[in-house]
Structures are given as structure tokens and as C-alpha cells.
């Protein structure tokens, strides 16, 4: 019985770690979406002045 409890404790601990890993994706997903919208999309336009302005504006707001 105690072996079973130990196994379940181990499994709960692993699940907690996995949940934390999944939760951490929110912040990085938001970061990437922000970079795509604010930097990558202006870059796709190939307008040099707009690209420089987008980078400067983005960095200023960090």
C-alpha cells in the first residue's frame, strides 16, 4: 500500500511540473505574438524607414 502511495505522490509531483511547464507557455506565446505583430509584420513591408521606426518604438516600450 505504501508503495502505491509513494508511486501516486511521485505521479502528482510529475503532473504538477507538467502543468507548470504548460502554464509557462502563455508568457512566451504572448512575447512571440507581440514580436510578430510589432516587428515582423513591418519588416515584411521592406520599408527601411518604417522598419527602423518599428524597432525603435518597440524597444522604447520594453
Amino acid at each position: 500500500m505504501s508503495r502505491r502511495v509513494a508511486q501516486l505522490q511521485q505521479r502528482v509531483s510529475e503532473l504538477e511540473d507538467e502543468i507548470a511547464e504548460l502554464r509557462r507557455h502563455h508568457l512566451r506565446l504572448a512575447e512571440l505574438a507581440d514580436v510578430v505583430q510589432e516587428l515582423l509584420i513591418p519588416m515584411a513591408g521592406r520599408d527601411e524607414a518604417r522598419i527602423a521606426e518599428a524597432i525603435e518604438k518597440f524597444q522604447k516600450s520594453l
Partner: peptide, 10 residues
Amino acid sequence: EWRSMLAETA
């Protein structure tokens, strides 16, 4: 902060 590193890389 990925945004900081990516913007400076760009």
C-alpha cells in the same frame, strides 16, 4: 525577456 533579445537582434 524574448522580446528584448529579439528586438536587439533585429
